[in-house]
């Protein structure tokens, strides 16, 4: 089956039904391995055991941004091609991206208190991630407010495209401004600055979180397609009854 064939909602449902159990099982195995590696990773010479929070915080941040990146591509699919599956993907990704951004914010705060002496500072990195979380809440609220899915999709797509400006701000905030947050140490020009004994468990954790994100997104998209079918049948029921 070609990838383009999945753009048909019925074919996508068949694909999702087949792949979700296998991908879910793989996610469980990789997660168990990631937790084992994270628990057995050495302490950092400066930060001690609190470095274990990084195995949650960094994947949370990456996937929070990835979620908005996917929504941005879906927004283009909605506005340019008006493809219904693009709306479905954007709507399904919003709560998942919001949850991962929330994990990033809370774990960052819990990491910041022992390392920086404070749970929160209004510096550029922390504030721009908080803005991303608020943007997620705004998109979710928009989807819930507008009853007609196609109208809601267009409004949410515009907000998503505007909100995408926050992604480079998050990424480069530590370079553009003097922040309390450390600069990029994995995704940077040149080699990562983290020791392999800590970097490898971090990459395994990121893989586990990414697989989880993929499973949840597929499952949420399947739910959204079913929800739209329910809506269609209810409208049909109302029109035939009148």
């Amino acid at each position: 089956m070609a990838v383009i064939d999945l753009a048909n909602p019925s074919r996508f449902l068949g694909f999702a039904n087949r792949i979700i159990p296998w991908l879910g099982a793989l996610t469980l195995v990789v997660f168990a391995f990631a937790i084992s590696r994270a628990m057995n990773a050495p302490d950092d010479y400066q930060q001690g055991a609190t470095v274990k929070i990084m195995y949650l915080h960094v994947p949370g941040a990456w996937l929070g941004m990835l979620g908005w990146g996917l929504m941005t591509m879906a927004a283009l699919g909605t506005l340019v091609w008006r493809h219904p599956l693009a709306d479905v993907a954007a709507k399904a990704a919003a709560p998942i991206g919001a949850a991962f951004t929330f994990i990033c914010l809370v774990t960052g705060s819990l990491w910041g208190r022992p390392m920086w002496g404070t749970y929160w500072v209004w510096d550029a990195r922390l504030t721009s991630v908080l803005v991303l979380f608020l943007l997620y809440l705004g998109v979710i609220a928009l989807w819930r407010t507008v009853e007609d899915p196609s109208r809601a999709a267009r409004a949410a797509a515009i907000l998503t495209l505007v909100g995408a400006l926050d992604l480079p701000i998050i990424k480069f905030s530590v370079d553009w401004w003097n922040t309390l947050h450390q600069p990029a140490s994995v995704l940077r020009l040149g080699a990562p600055t983290i020791d392999p004994s800590i970097l490898i468990p971090l990459l395994i954790s990121a893989l586990a979180f990414t697989l989880l994100f993929a499973v949840l997104l597929l499952a949420a998209m399947r739910n959204e397609i079913l929800r739209r079918r329910v809506r269609t049948l209810r409208l049909l029921q109302a029109s035939t009854a009148s």
Binding site: I53, L56, H57, V106, T107, L110, W111, P114
Partner: peptide, 13 residues
């Protein structure tokens, strides 16, 4: 003294 922060982070996630 930092165990509480680590446990809280994993529990929240």
């Amino acid at each position: 003294s930092h165990t509480g922060f680590i446990v809280a982070a994993y529990a929240t996630a």
